[in-house]
Structure formats: C-alpha cells, structure tokens
Design a protein around this nucleic acid. Structure first.
Lengths: 227, 227
DNA sequence: ACCTGAACACCGTTCAAGT
DNA sequence: ACCTGAACACCGTTCAAGT
C-alpha cells in the first residue's frame, strides 16, 4: 500500500502533532470516542508509538486541557477594573470551550495546575488584591467564575442531549417552570452572562463588607445555612 | 460451589437492587471503574441480566443520578426566605455529593431532567417568583447555584488528585498565589459557601434592579464584557 | 531513540438459546 | 419473563524485538 512504514524509521512525529490531532479528534467526535488506537491511526502510526510522546491516556487528556487553556487565556488588560478583568477572563474561558467542545468534559475532570496557568492565576489575583480583596477571597472568586463557566458548558451539553420537547411536556402542570422556558431555550451565553454578572455583583458586596473590617482579619462566613 | 444458579431460575433481582449496588460500587471505586460486568458479578449474576433492568450503561448512569437526587433534595421549607431556600438547596446538593462521591462526575455529564427533579425545581422557582424574580431569572439562579455546587465538587476532586506540595512548589515566585494558599488548603465547603453567598448577594442586587423596572419587561443584560 | 507486533486483561452490547 | 453463554468489536497498556 505504500502507506506502511519500515520499523525503526522515524515518523517525524512530535508531541505537538499528537496533541493537535488529539484536540481535532476530540472536537469532532468527543473525548469519549477518542482512543489511543484511533489517534494513532489518524497519525498513520501504531498505537504504541504515542507512548513515546505522552505518558499515558491521562497524560494526553491533561495535555489537551493545557493546550486549550494556553490558546485561550490572556493576561489581564492593564488599567482595566477588576470587574472587567474577571468578565474578560470568563469570556476567554467561554470562547475556548466553544472552540473546543470536545475538551469541556476534561476541564471538569482534570485539574490543569501547570506553571503556565499559575502565572495567569497570579496576574488575576494581583488585580483583585490591588482592588482590595484578600488573596484567599480573590482565589475563591476566580475559582467560582471558572467553575461557573465550565459548569454551564457541561450543563448545556447535557441539556442538548435531551430533546427540548420532552422537557416542555414534562413541564406540563408546572406553571413556573413552563413560564421560565416560554421565552425560548436558555442558551449557554445567557447562563454564563447572568451567573458571572451575579458573581461580580456578589463579590462587590463581599468586598464592601470586608473593607469595613480591620486589616488582617479573615472574612468570617456569613450565615447562609451552609454549615 | 453452590453459587451457580440454574438458567431460567429467577434471581429475584429488581431494578432497586441493581441501582443500590451500582451506587455502592461507584462510591467505593469511582464510576470510571464501574462496569456492567463487575456490577453483575457483585450481584451474583451474568452481565447480560442487567439489561433486563436497565436500558444500557448510560441508562444506569442516569438512574444513579436520579437516585442520588431523589435521596438528597427536599421541598423548600415553608415560610423561609428565598435566600434561605436557595442556601438550603445548595446544601442538600452538597451533602448528596459528599455522600456519593462516585456520582459527582455523572452530575456533570447527565442532565437529570426527570419528573421528580422538575417538581422540586417548580417549588424552588415558585419561592423565587413570589419573592419578585421573573421566572427566567429564577431559573438562571437555580442553574447557577446547582452548577456552582457541582463544579466546586469536580474541581475539588481534581485538586485532590494532584499532590498539594506540587502546587506550593509551582507557586514559588508567585506571591499572591502563595498568599492565597498560605492559610491552608481550600476546602470544598469553603468554596461552595463563598460562591453561594456571592451568588445570593449578586441576585439580591439583580432583584433590586429589576423591581425598579416596569412589570413584564425582560431584564436587559448588564454590561460585563461578555458579548 | 523511535517505532512495531503480539499479547494480556479488560470493555459494552447483540443474539440465540435455555427454563 | 428472566437469565445465560458465546461471540463481536472494541479498549489501554506491557513487553520484547526490530532498526
């Protein structure tokens, strides 16, 4: 067939090629159907060859997450307010997940604590600290926004899997649910926008409260019934 | 061996037994290692037998989610404020995921739109509507809280998989990250509590804004840079 | 160093067959 | 109706072997 390569001959395969193909396949068919064997076939290589460029399948998945994050996140714009920086961060994450739908589940599963992401995190936290947030509260804010964005993508993917008609029928006899769905389907964009808007407004409140406290004190929990 | 059962003899297996065993195995070893074959073995039955009680593996996973939700969610307490109701809902979800760690990933993956969960949703939305929220805003609020809770559990599970020392070492040279982590590890409880507190405060702001608008108008998006 | 081929220990699911 | 056994088409990964 001419396609066969002689053993020992270099395929010229690099980690970058492997990753690029993995992301492409994941976006096309979903991570669930991404296998080491299929990925190898796509690259014209035996499955075992991949293990020279990636520790194992988990390592491949981690690399996909890093790849998408590196491609999506940018340092905060100088001079922007913390609200703008947080909203922009959410938007970058959202666009990244939109561009790479296959990677969404991996974002929920793999931690992605790499030097590169930590540098971005540091720059975000610095903006928040300069705005008056305690470092730990700032971390909570970033965590909250990130997992809100990922969570809404996950939920939207799940919702897309169930036919909307089924929901409308099931909502029969549930007037408020029906009213909420009456204005058309709830989009990921609207869910993320509302959630991020609420989080920013909520942390504005938390910031205002904390600034009235003596410095160096840990923000005590407000009673929410969550104990 | 005595354990072998004659073909055609009823094993007395019910859907309830299958589900209970599935949840137990998922909690013990994680869903990733839960297989139809292992589950069948645990029940002293052949793998194919399970297909009489469950459509397929995806159906089994959906059933696990429903099972955990049914066990965890309760109708809102009469007379409670909307803030208390929302916080209690988050807490119930949080406890359910704590009790069934194996199910967490399934919550991120499977939608869980069942008659039972829709009834709970209706009761929650009713409380929020009575408090002055537009139905759709109320839905956004519940969505935001639910995926915040699930998201924080997912992130916590992912973080638990990476050794905290590695993070501290990587955080070297990143003073604000280091400061945020200095007070000890960030727990799921604190992450959920802060996030839910922020969301409640944020939606209080949104509610106050909407109430100053003429009735029947859709809440326009506030500029967050998310467009 | 990089790639292969065979093998091991698994999967979910279908299908025909048993009682 | 409920359960089984064999089979199909897959998996990730190890290991020894090739150049």
């Amino acid at each position: 067939m001419g396609k066969a390569r002689v053993q020992g001959r270099h395929a010229g395969l690099t980690r970058g090629h492997v990753l690029e193909a993995a992301v492409r396949l994941a976006d096309r068919d979903g991570v669930a159907s991404l296998s080491m064997r299929k990925l190898a076939a796509e690259l014209g290589v035996e499955a075992m060859t991949l293990y020279h460029h990636v520790r194992n399948k988990q390592g491949l998945e981690d690399a996909i997450v890093e790849h998408v994050l590196a491609e999506s996140l940018r340092p905060p714009r100088a001079g922007a307010s913390w609200q703008e920086v947080v909203a922009a961060h959410a938007d970058e994450l959202h666009r990244g997940l939109n561009r790479h739908p296959g990677a969404v589940i991996l974002f929920a599963t793999r931690p992605a604590v790499t030097p590169a992401t930590l540098v971005v995190l540091e720059s975000l936290l610095r903006v928040l600290r300069d705005a008056g947030f305690a470092p730990r509260t700032a971390l909570h804010l970033i965590y909250a926004v990130a997992s809100a964005v990922v969570g809404q993508h996950l939920a939207a993917d799940g919702a897309a899997a169930t036919p909307p008609d089924a929901v409308l029928i099931a909502a029969d006899g549930l007037p408020v649910v029906a009213a909420a769905l009456a204005d058309g389907p709830v989009t990921v964009e609207s869910r993320i926008e509302v959630t991020v808007t609420a989080l920013i407004a909520g942390f504005e409140t938390i910031l205002a409260r904390d600034e009235n406290r003596p410095r160096g004190m840990d923000p005590p929990a407000r009673g929410t019934g969550l104990e």
